[in-house]
């Protein structure tokens, strides 16, 4: 079922949480709303769910205008960051909650709850209470509970935010597989760009209540639309454009703007090259599978470069060594705003 958001705005007092946001999520899609805290991503998700009303604009789910419908009538599934399981009910009773409310026959409820517990790999834990489960298990119960009522769309608010790093990684790979199995149109909120890139078909990058860019993870990485997007998707070097150092960019592009350059797109050479500029190695930091080199440019600007261990060894990099650097990919943006 598709979701269409048309020019939605929402204010909390003086604070503008959403500023004329428009978005289309296609049927069966898995979309990430990505942005820093306060960017409006959670508000947008809650507006789609009906937990939050909007000041202006429209929201359509499956072609139906749901802007003024109560959350109960929108037929959505919602997963909360802190699970929001009913603490006094068992896992089975939690999953059955929505079906009991709808007064479905007992046999059907039992059947469906059993199927869902199997789907989320919690068969055998149905009689436990939420307090007896791990964080990852609780979030899977919350997911089963949301899916039980066969929602038109599934909305997840920072679903992995409260989990530790290892469980978080496992669960997001699992969510991706689950979506391929169940195919319900899903939107999830995250502030973790790696998570968004890994799980989603399409990533929506938000900042200050506006959408900066919508695209597949690849499009966003290869062709960031704004300075904010480029600086939000991983670390980036920002240099004044007037340096004119980078021959891959035209002078037209670099005048009056900043050049954005990712650490892993910097190539370090031992010998001079027509497209390369000289630099001095100022510092070397070992990050495990990568090595980070701080490079000083002749005009006192500094750059951070990442090279693989193998390259590092073959170059035999040392502090104070003179090298030549070349950019494999750089972009110029007139804007000054970057994410820090």
């Amino acid at each position: 079922m598709s979701i269409i958001v048309e020019s939605v705005s929402k204010n909390f007092g003086e604070f503008q949480a959403l500023d004329r946001v428009s978005l289309k999520v296609k049927d069966g899609g898995l979309v990430a709303l990505l942005g820093p805290s306060g960017s409006g991503k959670s508000t947008l998700l809650r507006a789609i769910s009906g937990l939050e009303t909007v000041d202006s604009g429209k929201i359509l789910i499956n072609g139906q205008d749901t802007t003024n419908l109560d959350v109960r009538q929108r037929n959505i599934g919602f997963v909360f960051q802190h699970y929001a399981l009913f603490k006094h009910l068992t896992v089975r009773q939690n999953v059955a909650f929505g079906l009991d409310i709808r007064k479905r026959p007992r046999g059907e409820v039992q059947q469906r709850v059993g199927d869902l517990l199997e789907l989320v790999q919690l068969t055998g834990l149905g009689d436990r209470y939420p307090s007896q489960l791990s964080g990852g298990q609780r979030q899977r119960v919350a997911l089963a509970r949301a899916l039980a009522v066969q929602p038109q769309v599934l909305l997840l608010d920072e679903p992995f935010g409260a989990l530790d790093a290892k469980v978080r990684k496992e669960l997001r790979a699992w969510l991706r597989r689950l979506h391929d199995e169940v195919h319900v149109t899903s939107v999830f909120v995250t502030h973790d760009q790696e998570e968004a890139m890994e799980v989603a078909d399409e990533v929506v990058i938000m900042n200050h209540g506006r959408i900066e860019q919508v695209g597949t993870p690849e499009e966003i990485y290869d062709n960031p639309a704004t300075a904010f997007v480029m600086s939000f998707i991983g670390p980036v070097n920002v240099l004044p454009g007037h340096l004119g150092l980078f021959k891959t960019l035209t002078t037209q592009e670099t005048r009056n703007s900043n050049v954005f350059l990712r650490p892993q797109d910097i190539e370090i050479l031992e010998q001079p090259h027509p497209e390369a500029i000289p630099a001095v190695v100022a510092r070397i930091i070992h990050l495990g599978w990568e090595v980070q080199a701080e490079l000083a440019l002749p005009d006192e600007h500094n750059l951070t470069a990442h090279v693989s261990r193998e390259q590092f060894k073959s170059l035999d990099l040392r502090v104070n060594q003179n090298v030549f650097i070349k950019s494999k990919f750089a972009k110029a943006f007139p804007e000054v705003e970057v994410f820090r």
């Binding site: 959350v71 109960r72 919602f78 909360f80 399981l85 009913f86 909650f97 929505g98 509970r145 039980a148």
Partner: peptide
């Protein structure tokens, strides 16, 4: 949150 969860489930 628990009240909101119940609302999304149609209660």
């Amino acid at each position: 949150e628990q009240e909101e969860a119940a609302r999304t489930l149609g209660a």
